[in-house]
């Protein structure tokens, strides 16, 4: 049976799903809205998890943060799966060209030995940091509440795996695919005093229970400081030492951090604006973790950039925090 429709399209019976209509009114919805709001199960869970019998499968008590509506955490990027992979595919295309160019032109050979050594010692260990960030964001995705925030945490977690892989590829470009640079960087990560503070910090985040606190420790505090220190300040400093080609390999991370920060800032702002209780809790967590992170990063900042670099990174973090309505 073939149908030919010559007239205008049919009048729909309704514009969208009922839960979307209750939130946004009776009008056509966006793909982000339909993919996000009220998709997750809320009630009538059948069995308590054997691995955490005091709580339900999805349970708001897994964090001290309280929200009247967990779907208040709208992602300003409006990432649902399709929008997310398309945005990242564009970024990876640029990265792929950069990495290919770097390799084809033999830019690794051009990089001064000293600059190379700096990259191996100060930047390559970040692949382990990214790995922890992957786990920490998966944690929030698994135990958080409401698709709006849990999907964004999943996207962030996968981004971090991607970045860990890009950082690793920098090592492979530098050592001509032998893996030697990566094993050298790994030994710095494991035993060089330079990195032990950061490693200690991250191991601590991996045993921290409250998923929102983990988000603060990782995505807000540590990322803010490290991305500023390494992908901005270290990058700039390397450029002065004839290592500017590295910038082609870290562009992805810079662009990514801007993109992710829009979301992280929105989460912070929403949580803080919800109640004084939330705001105080956030400030307490941030103060605690910021202190730990500054201690952990002091050697790295000094070695990778210079005295005072950490202060610059700290100021950038504090500016974000005050924009989010914290520490007023």
């Amino acid at each position: 049976m073939t149908i030919e429709i010559k007239t205008a399209t049919l009048e729909p019976v309704r514009n969208t799903f009922a839960h979307i209509e209750r939130r946004f009114g009776d009008k056509p919805a966006t793909r982000y809205q339909e993919a996000t709001y009220d998709v997750q199960s809320e009630v009538n869970f059948h069995y308590r998890p054997l691995w955490q019998p005091e709580l339900e499968l999805t349970d708001t008590r897994r964090t001290a943060i309280k929200m009247a509506d967990w779907y208040a955490f709208r992602d300003p990027r409006q990432f649902y799966y399709g929008a997310y992979v398309q945005a990242r595919a564009k970024m990876q295309e640029v990265a792929e060209n950069n990495y290919a160019f770097f390799e084809k032109r033999g830019l690794a050979e051009r990089m001064p030995e000293e600059a190379k050594q700096k990259v191996i010692r100060c930047l390559l260990p970040l692949r382990h940091v990214e790995h922890a960030a992957n786990l920490n964001n998966m944690y929030g995705s698994a135990y958080g509440n409401g698709t709006a925030i849990t999907q964004a945490l999943l996207f962030d977690g996968m981004d971090r795996l991607g970045i860990a892989q890009y950082v690793s590829r920098i090592g492979l470009l530098l050592d001509g695919n032998t893996g030697d640079a990566l094993s050298e960087a790994r030994s710095y990560w494991m035993s060089d005093p330079l990195w032990q503070g950061v490693r200690r910090y991250l191991e601590k985040t991996l045993v921290t229970e409250d998923w929102f606190e983990v988000f603060i420790a990782q995505d807000v505090v540590l990322d803010s400081l490290i991305y500023n220190l390494i992908y901005e300040q270290f990058d700039a400093k390397l450029a002065q030492q004839d290592g500017q080609d590295l910038g082609m390999l870290t562009e992805f991370m810079q662009v990514w951090f801007k993109d992710a920060s829009r979301w992280v800032d929105a989460v912070l702002k929403t949580a803080a604006a919800e109640s004084d209780e939330n705001r105080l809790q956030l400030e307490q967590w941030i103060s605690h973790w910021r202190g730990q992170a500054e201690e952990a990063l002091s050697l790295v900042a000094h070695e990778a950039v210079e005295e005072g670099a950490l202060q610059v990174a700290r100021e950038a973090l504090d500016k974000r925090l005050s924009k989010a309505g914290l520490f007023k």
């Binding site: 690793s168 090592g171 492979l172 050592d175 893996g179 030697d180 990566l182 494991m190 991996l206 045993v207």
Partner: peptide, 26 residues
């Protein structure tokens, strides 16, 4: 740099497996 080149399997190992580490502090 004449050291051996990695095959695909080893390369993938470096891009995933090798990211984790044994804990010292927790």
């Amino acid at each position: 740099m004449a050291a051996k080149k990695l095959n695909i399997k080893e390369k993938y190992r470096l891009l995933t497996r090798d990211l984790d580490w044994e804990f010292s502090y927790e």
